[in-house]
């Protein structure tokens, strides 16, 4: 079709009359191992589209902005056109897949805290792992932008983990992709389906039943019936109310270099009196924590303005914004 903007591994992006909107079409193609293994599973596109719609709508309730505009039905969703961030954001609760291969550990290890990883979206380079430092050095994002991505992913994790536990499923890990719409707003894009996450049912007797693309990767059985089981459970879900933590921004305010910090001097002398002499200087500052429910495109700008007009006096102070 000549309004195809992009054909991906499992979806096709179609243009619409509105240059800021696209149609995301979920196809029946399925691949694994970087394209090494391929197949067509009739009905998979429909199932993944339905699952994505349900989950996007749930996430919207928790102030996570997604690219979903409208459910056109069947295998298609009308979405905002995004300038995709070439960073895949992975969240892991339990060790599985590439994590285990990379570090030589067994699958099924429960992490104390959810682990966030970033990968470069690049087929030729096989989506290499990105460290925070690399991302910043490559100027793909700033530190605070990364902190925001991680915070959103953690909130998605809290919501989805809760939802799936209601359905007797453990959310092992998942992948998110983000992008910017025409207003510069950061939106969650792509899909959320068994193709992009791992779901296990852990039975009392120790049996582990897999309901995601690992069925295909490891030839564990009928892929579609596993995916449809997930859809069916989601359709019967009684939505709980999930408590999510607010996004906690921190603004640190310090005196500029060159402005005398009298209090710092006094504290320095007091510390030296206690016998600690191993330092040059001590500077006092203030720290403000601001909790926000929703992250929108203007949040950083708003915080900068807050710092400049109220929390700091720019004549004598500088500031730094971070996410806790």
């Amino acid at each position: 079709m000549n309004n195809q903007l992009y054909v991906g591994k499992a979806k096709t992006i179609l243009a619409t009359e509105d240059q800021n909107q696209v149609i995301v079409k979920f196809d029946d193609r399925i691949t694994a191992g970087d394209g090494a293994k391929k197949a067509d599973i009739g009905g998979k596109g429909f199932t993944n589209c339905r699952i994505s719609v349900i989950l996007f709508k749930i996430l919207e309730k928790y102030q996570i902005n997604t690219h979903l505009i409208e459910d056109i039905g069947d295998i298609m969703l009308k979405c905002h056109k995004l300038e995709i961030l070439p960073i895949e954001v992975i969240c892991r609760n339990i060790s599985a897949g590439s994590f285990c291969r990379r570090y030589g550990v067994e699958e099924g290890r429960l992490f104390d805290e959810p682990l966030i990883e970033f990968f470069l979206k690049n087929d030729e380079l096989h989506d290499p792992l990105l460290s925070e430092g690399s991302i910043i050095s490559l100027k793909m994002a700033t530190k605070i932008q990364l902190e925001i991505l991680a915070a959103i992913a953690l909130r998605v994790n809290t919501v989805l983990q809760n939802i799936f536990r209601q359905l007797n499923l453990e959310l092992v890990d998942f992948k998110l992709e983000f992008g910017y719409n025409q207003n510069g707003s950061l939106l969650l894009g792509d899909e959320i389906s068994p193709d992009s996450m791992r779901l296990w049912q852990l039975n009392q007797d120790g049996e582990k039943i897999i309901f995601d693309k690992d069925i295909f990767r490891k030839d564990l059985g009928d892929v579609l019936s596993g995916y449809n089981e997930v859809l069916q459970r989601l359709n019967n879900l009684e939505q709980p109310i999930i408590e999510v933590k607010p996004y906690s921004f921190k603004i640190d305010v310090f005196l500029k270099d060159g402005v005398i910090d009298a209090q710092g001097e006094v504290i320095k002398r007091a510390i030296q009196r206690l016998g600690f002499n191993n330092f040059e200087e001590i500077k006092t500052g203030k720290s403000f924590k601001i909790n926000i429910d929703t992250i929108n495109s203007e949040i950083l700008m708003t915080l900068e303005k807050l710092a400049e007009e109220l929390l700091a006096n720019p004549l004598i102070e500088t500031w730094n914004i971070s996410l806790v």
Partner: peptide, 10 residues
């Protein structure tokens, strides 16, 4: 213009 800051003696 300007700003008032802590006394030097704190």
């Amino acid at each position: 213009p300007g700003v008032l800051t802590k006394n030097l003696s704190t």
